[in-house]
Write a protein that binds this DNA or RNA. Sequence first.
DNA 1: GTCTATATTCAGATAGAC
DNA 2: GTCTATCTGAATATAGAC
Lengths: 238, 238
Amino acid sequence: MADEIASVVDTRGRILDAAERLFAQHGLEATSMRMLSAAAGCNLASTNYHFGGKEGLIREVFRRRLTWLNRERLRVLDEMEAAATGRPLKPHLILEAFFGVALRMAADSEGGGATFMRLLGRTYAEPSQFIRNFLAEEYAAVLERFKRALFRALPAVPEAEIVWRLHFMLGAMSYAIAGTDALKLIAHCELDEANPAAALAPRLMSFLLGGLRAPLPAGCTAQRAKPDAKVRRSRRAA
Amino acid sequence: MADEIASVVDTRGRILDAAERLFAQHGLEATSMRMLSAAAGCNLASTNYHFGGKEGLIREVFRRRLTWLNRERLRVLDEMEAAATGRPLKPHLILEAFFGVALRMAADSEGGGATFMRLLGRTYAEPSQFIRNFLAEEYAAVLERFKRALFRALPAVPEAEIVWRLHFMLGAMSYAIAGTDALKLIAHCELDEANPAAALAPRLMSFLLGGLRAPLPAGCTAQRAKPDAKVRRSRRAA
DNA sequence: GTCTATATTCAGATAGAC
DNA sequence: GTCTATCTGAATATAGAC
């Protein structure tokens, strides 16, 4: 990762850094290749030379961070599962592996991780077809893996319910990371935190865990509930 | 509202309906005034005549639904508070007033409410300054009111924590409504629901309530906790 | 109020010199 | 690899006839 990120020397790296920053600030479409080239201190033609067009550039901006992020998520999860020696992981560990890694990246304001996570959060809502397909590809394996881990961790909760809740958790995280200003709007009064980005992680984690372990909605039948009395316990014991 | 929405007769209404649909589908910037005029069956110049430009049109698309939505939220909350005769409302009722109203609108596929809510969900992540300011204005009063209701309902939870959690809940809802396809990505296997939009509401509500009532993150001191033994109870009794 | 026609600006992309 | 210069298309917006 270190080789690939934040190269002040070569043009290619400078373009990617500038793109990341401007995309996060103004959005993908509102950022023109001209704007971007100027910010990177190079020529318009150069950006097209390196990435073959705007679409290629966007893809690369996401790829260089996302592959690392998702690999790291899997690494942490693997580590945890190895330590658990066959027993299902507790839900809070699974969330830690998925969201904790992302939140640590979002708190890294020097390496550009914060900028990228802001961009990523906004991009989840992007209607453009090509970017949705691209993100779907990048995420498919990771989501599948974490989904299965949650299934194992919460055997009393119907799988469909877990899928929905994973969806909700992704939304809460995206929005929380992308919208710092939205929080200020709600707060109105000053939040006492000096650094909101650092204060976010523990707060979001406990919120997500609460949502994941919430009582099931009325009329929801447990499809895989074991016929013993541990049902209630396993919904609490995270 | 009935007068203002879905007029097939007058051009102005047809433009608004077409704009709502196309904005939700392609995004604000990716939808051109030409595309939009064609879909509305009128001329490009006409749309500029009625709304004074693209920005004015966007503003009006949101205004006609948002003022109704937020007024309805306040109406329901007022009604609940009147019925409670001075006692603080239970958290689940407050969430019902805020999110329930929105979710019912999102489930209305005939009146265009579903389309609009999809648009709204995506727009929360919009980086454009003018649209953020506009939404901030439209929401300020409602958020303030619901914030205070939650403060009263959860006296043992620090106000800052409630603000954060309101923020998280807004994110979960936006994303849940905006991203139907994202869910399919996660699911991979088929969800048995015939109508995902209708299945959403109870699931999201229980998730949000679980998050709102989650145990406080470690190191979080209750700033207004009363010095009696009811603290634990009031965090559960929703 | 609705149209045709047009002004203006700016987007993404490329050819070709160096 | 990087530049200048330019092509081509599409965007918002408006002037002015009807």
